[in-house]
């Protein structure tokens, strides 16, 4: 038996909106730790890892570890039927082939349940080792989204370079080139407006902007985005989910032929 009650149902709505175009179907895993997912896009270039910790739920009952295969567009469609202020409860029976999403309005005057068929998904789970990154950039998530959107009007790829000068986002296309440099800016009035760059060594990597733009759909989840770069690893674009966990996007770089 599984029963997870999330007071801030809008979080789950936002999570689905941020991943449904990147990943078609995925297994949601539930254990004492929480509600999690790891999935790759169809071309295996990007990977998303989601964790919503059990402590973040108002009620969390998961009698045994369970993996539920869902088609994400269908799940997103059902969650769109929940109001932004609704409490969402996810329910499933052990060994069942359906999951139920229950939506309660804040004053309890409307209760809806939507039952969705589960599917069997053969997905490989990858081990993601803890790594030391050469550079970590923390910046307002809206600023990062703006940069990715602006650059994709010029080119298809972005070169992200971190030096002691700051972080530079560059692109090149048929009509010309673009460079956006953000300098460390820790002394702002609001901490969420700060750009903080931790650099151990300079690093420069090239990525497909199409994926970066897809990751920025998670912007409504967090004011701050953390971008971790290392020359030997996929970039990690992380959005923390208030008090609950995170959504991390991993993107394999483009490499010189």
């Amino acid at each position: 038996m599984l029963e997870l009650r999330l007071l801030q149902g809008s979080l789950l709505k936002k999570v689905l909106e941020s991943i449904k175009d990147l990943v078609t179907e995925a297994n949601f895993d539930c254990s004492a730790t929480g509600f999690s997912l790891q999935a790759m896009d169809s071309s295996h270039v990007a990977l998303v890892a989601l964790l919503l910790r059990s402590e973040g739920f108002e009620h969390f009952r998961c009698d045994r570890n369970i993996s539920m295969g869902m088609k994400l567009v269908n799940m997103a469609m059902m969650l769109k039927c929940a109001g932004n202020d609704d409490i969402i409860t996810i329910k499933a029976d052990d060994g069942g082939d359906t999951v139920t999403f229950m939506f309660e309005s804040p004053n309890q005057d409307k209760i809806a349940d939507f039952e969705m068929k589960l599917m069997n998904i053969d997905s490989e789970h990858l081990g993601i080792p803890e790594a030391e990154y050469q550079a970590i950039v923390r910046m307002p998530s809206s600023e990062f989204a703006r940069i990715c959107k602006d650059l994709s009007t010029i080119g298809d790829t972005v070169i992200i370079s971190v030096t002691k000068e700051g972080v530079k986002f560059s692109t090149k296309g048929d009509i010309g080139t673009a460079n956006i440099v953000c300098r460390q800016n820790a002394t702002v009035d609001k901490p969420e407006d700060a750009i903080i760059i931790e650099m151990k060594e300079p690093v420069s990597l090239t990525f497909a902007l199409r994926y970066m733009n897809s990751f920025t759909k998670a912007t409504p989840l967090a004011n701050i985005v953390t971008i971790s770069l290392s020359s030997e690893l996929p970039v990690v674009v992380e959005y923390k989910i208030a008090e609950m966990g995170y959504i991390r996007f991993y993107l394999a770089p483009k490499i010189e032929e």
Binding site: V45, E124, H125, G127, A208, P234, Y250, A252, K254, E257
Partner: peptide, 14 residues
């Protein structure tokens, strides 16, 4: 010219 690498080039199956 740049080639797109894949996640499995970096992370292996659990």
């Amino acid at each position: 010219h740049c080639l797109q690498s894949r996640i499995s080039d970096y992370f292996s199956r659990d």
